[in-house]
Design a protein around this nucleic acid. Structure first.
Lengths: 135, 135
DNA sequence: CTACTTGCAAACTCTTTGCACCATA
DNA sequence: TATGGTGCAAAGAGTTTGCAAGTAG
């Protein structure tokens, strides 16, 4: 865990709250700020929701977590340490499917070559309808 | 304009507010609810913001507008009559680039073939960094 | 006329911020 | 012990809803 080093090298401090938030996101895989808070409450005394927001922002700045938008509402965070993946969200049933970024590499290459756009694959979410819901 | 027919066939009524909201979205190309309201205020007396929300929801149900998320905050609506397109959003500068859906057809086909997922191209937004910001 | 719509205001959700107190280094 | 961090409460965006008054058909 290099959380401590990353924090210290920028003058930030290591606190139990910061460890907990990162652990929550890592364990949950996908977590909204509210999800992370719930996870933390189940095992320790709890952390204030505003601290969760501040910490997620900080962890993202440090490159330890990333976020996407899997629904209309809250953003969803996941650990940057997790293998990078693309999200498919089925609108009818709400299911979230993760895929290897390989499936979008043709698209990424096209965007780079045609318009010089560097796509952020880890942030990509494709909405649509899954196989079951299409029947 | 088949707004009137579409509304009537489902028992809804044609009102000046509904015409204005659809016209706002069509003219602006991309519009948040707040943007649409601003456009309407510039030419007529104005419409209440809650009517804008209700109307956008209705127009989407009727298939006349669609929405995407181009930023963290408000959703962005565009007329369904406009040619379908994919959005690229440059995070550093905020610029929005529109591309023909052709560029993502390889991806759409892959998703369909591999996992049976029917991607909604009109709703797709790719975040990343544009050519200028990459220099 | 009647049912659908609108405007208004209040309520709600999600997120941010100011500030006094607390804790890491 | 000196900052930086946290909790709390209040303030802000964005959005939804209940209800009385207005209006399209």
């Amino acid at each position: 865990m290099d959380l401590h080093q990353r924090l210290r090298s920028r003058g930030y401090r290591l606190t139990p709250q910061r460890e907990l938030v990162l652990e929550a996101v890592s364990s949950l895989g996908h977590a909204t700020p509210e999800d992370a808070l719930g996870w933390i409450r189940e095992r320790s005394g709890g952390v204030n929701i505003s601290t969760v927001y501040r910490t997620l922002e900080l962890l993202e700045e440090l490159g330890l977590v990333k976020h996407t938008h899997l629904s209309h509402g809250a953003p969803t965070y996941h650990a940057a340490a997790a293998p990078e993946h693309v999200h498919l969200v089925c609108r009818p049933c709400g299911k979230v499917i993760e895929l290897e970024p390989r499936v979008v590499s043709p698209l990424v290459d096209t965007l780079q070559d045609d318009v010089g756009f560097a796509a952020d694959v880890g942030h990509l979410t494709v909405f649509g309808q899954c196989a079951e819901c299409s029947r």
